[in-house]
């Protein structure tokens, strides 16, 4: 997994709650057996109409968010299906950080395993940033090491992340290698049961 220490980028506001993984990556794109190339299908039916033409009304298609790499979203982001294709699509599209008041459990885990940083943040703060990003433009600096997010004006906000997940992201550690350090314990468990 790609390590992530900090990230600076512009924010895209998606002011919707309960964004489910069916919206993030629709099912017709789940048949591929590869792990890559899902970015083009991100939010597919929101971004494109039935003829595959870009919908001008959907904000992510706005030129001003072309370089966005930080996604601001409403509560319960990533609910529904366990498809890891959702974080693959977000990451491949160019998002490196997602900031939301809350995340669905499975999505949160899946994001962490793909170097995509999910940040839980107070709803009022997320709303404020969304407004800034809508009205003009918003650049944020996300420092995982210090667990802070700094905006254009130098205002700093702290965020929480379990230490265990933080260390894994900072080091880009692979879960399976870590687990295999405990292989003897797995064997012992199997003998006991």
């Amino acid at each position: 997994m790609e390590a992530i220490e900090s990230h600076k980028g512009s924010a895209y506001p998606l002011d919707r709650s309960n964004v489910d993984t069916d919206q993030i990556i629709p099912k017709q794109f789940l048949k591929r057996i590869e792990r890559t190339g899902f970015g083009q299908f991100l939010f597919y039916h929101w971004r494109f109409d039935d003829d595959g033409k870009m919908r001008e009304t959907f904000s992510l298609n706005d030129n001003k968010y072309k370089e966005a790499s930080i996604l601001l979203a409403g509560e319960n982001f990533g609910c529904g299906s366990s498809r890891e294709h959702a974080p693959w699509a977000l990451h491949d599209y160019g998002f490196k950080v997602i900031i939301a008041p809350s995340f669905a459990d499975i999505f949160y885990n899946n994001a962490l395993k793909n170097g995509l940083l999910p940040v839980k943040m107070d709803e009022a703060q997320v709303k404020q940033w969304m407004k800034q990003a809508e009205d003009g433009a918003l650049e944020l600096f996300v420092d995982l090491k210090l667990q802070t997010i700094t905006d254009d004006n130098g205002r700093e906000v702290a965020f929480d992340i379990p230490e265990y997940h933080k260390q894994k992201l900072l080091n880009g550690w692979d879960d399976i290698s870590l687990t295999l350090h405990h292989e003897a314990k797995i064997e012992a468990y199997e003998k006991r049961n």
Binding site: S82, R83, E84, I106, N110
Partner: peptide
Amino acid sequence: IGTSEVEH
């Protein structure tokens, strides 16, 4: 679980 966890 997700696919990374399936692999795990």
